[in-house]
Design a protein around this nucleic acid. Structure first.
Length: 415
DNA sequence: TCTGGGGTCCTAGGACCC
DNA sequence: TCTGGGGTCCTAGGACCC
């Protein structure tokens, strides 16, 4: 059979699990189906015990009068996710618990259980990889998938394969997801929002004007609240309006890189390939205190937290088999302003005491009169332990400029 | 009753080198 | 002595995303 091979259209899918955390919780507490449920809250040491005791019974309702203090919440928690029933009330992620309680007093609050979500995350990604091997991991509940060369990936513009993946995930987990399929990641990401939940949307190049241009600029992945506000001040609200602008004018207002990118994005152009694997750039731990702390008056408490954060970072490095060369801190004052300080060492390390020492020196470089609400420890300039050992073994005293200098010095002797 | 935690990438200035 | 230009690394801050 020598059927002429039709040129395959590039078909990129974006898959987004629907209300992921909440849906996982509904698997555990099916009696909450249809009710407004929010996931989030502060850290509560007793949550694990509560969960064990209560079994499949729902936990707390907010606000229950004196919520949150009586229930042990710090009052500083935010909503991580909400069921669609809760979203009807205007409750959404990143919202403070107190505000959520006002908007939807009958919502049921569940504490987050990352171990459980990670389990389901691994499960659905494994299912996808079995069907379509080119997948970019975009976090716990999102992926991009290249449909282009997958058998059936071109049928109905990708709809058939999207349906197969949806069904496979649902059959294995009971979870639903939404899929957008388009010529590139940018458009696929937008398309996956079109028919939520449990929807599929197919976008072709020719759909740009009808399906993309009417959308708000904010729908472009990469245009956040700040850029959106600036665009609005310039009188630009929709992607279509953005597309009408002169690229030079956009560059004047947003800089070379961002301006040119915005112009391309508004025209549906996105050349980014899928990133199938990547190495971490940094590892960090941070915590918001139950109450604002003062560097002097709460020295002991702060010191203990600081040391614990460093130990956690060191543990993370060890668990992931990395060493680091840059050590830094982040703190947030009671007025919510943040500062960072970091230092790059001559040698790599993964040692908790070393991290604690240099993080401590960083802390000394920062004003500490004001109360603090958050402290964080971060390490960067990472290298895998394997590569680090390898370099030590081969004694490559890396600095390339030194090598270059040596070569330069030899040049006059060359024939 | 303000605003979590874990990341990535970009910008911009200064140091330092060629 | 002055001028210039490119490149890399380091540091601080900020936008954005999940």
């Amino acid at each position: 059979m020598s059927t002429p091979q039709l040129a395959n259209l590039r078909r990129i899918a974006h898959l987004d699990m629907d209300a992921f955390y909440a849906s996982v919780e509904l698997l555990r507490y099916p009696q909450l189906k249809g009710l407004p449920v929010v996931i989030g809250g502060g850290r509560r040491p007793q949550d694990a015990d509560l969960k064990a005791q209560q079994g499949d019974r729902p936990l707390h309702r907010i606000p229950l009068a004196a919520f949150p203090r009586l229930q042990g919440y710090s009052g500083r928690g935010v909503i991580t996710t909400a069921t669609y029933a809760a979203r009807q009330f205007g409750v959404g992620s990143a919202m403070g618990l107190m505000k959520a309680a006002k908007l939807c007093p009958d919502a049921i609050l569940l504490p987050v259980d990352f171990a459980e979500y990670r389990h389901y995350s691994r499960t659905f990604k494994t299912i996808i990889l079995d069907i379509a091997p080119l997948m970019e991991d975009r976090g716990i509940d999102e992926v991009y998938i290249d449909f282009t060369q997958v058998p059936g990936g071109q049928r109905e513009g990708g709809r058939v394969l999207a349906r197969l993946i949806q069904k496979s995930i649902f059959d294995a987990t009971g979870l639903t997801c939404s899929v957008g399929v388009a010529p590139n990641k940018l458009l696929a990401k937008m398309a996956s929002e079109f028919n939520k939940p449990n929807g599929i949307a197919i976008v072709y190049e020719d759909d740009l004007e009808s399906k993309i241009w009417p959308l708000a600029c904010r729908k472009i992945n990469g245009i956040g609240p700040r850029a959106d506000e600036k665009l609005q001040q310039l009188g630009i609200r929709t992607i279509g309006e953005l597309a009408q602008q002169d690229v030079g004018w956009l560059i004047d207002h947003f800089g070379q890189k961002t301006g040119a990118w915005m112009f391309d994005a508004a025209h549906g152009i996105d050349p980014r390939p899928l990133v199938l694997e990547s190495e971490p750039v940094s590892i960090s731990r941070e915590t918001t205190f139950e109450r604002d702390l003062h560097a002097v008056r709460d020295k002991a408490e702060l010191g203990a937290i600081f040391t614990r954060l460093c130990a956690q970072v060191a543990q993370d490095l060890a668990r992931k088999s990395y060493v680091c060369k840059t050590i830094g801190i982040k703190l947030r004052y009671d007025d919510f302003k943040s500062v960072t300080r970091d230092v790059t060492l001559p040698d790599y390390t993964a040692d908790a005491a070393t991290i604690r020492h240099h993080a401590g020196l960083c802390l000394k470089r920062v004003p500490l009169q004001q109360r603090l609400r958050l402290l964080g420890v971060r390490v960067g300039s990472l290298m895998t332990v394997a590569e680090h050992l390898d370099r030590l073994k081969h004694k490559t005293p890396e600095p390339m400029h030194a090598v270059q200098t040596a070569m330069d010095l030899e040049l006059p002797d060359a024939p």
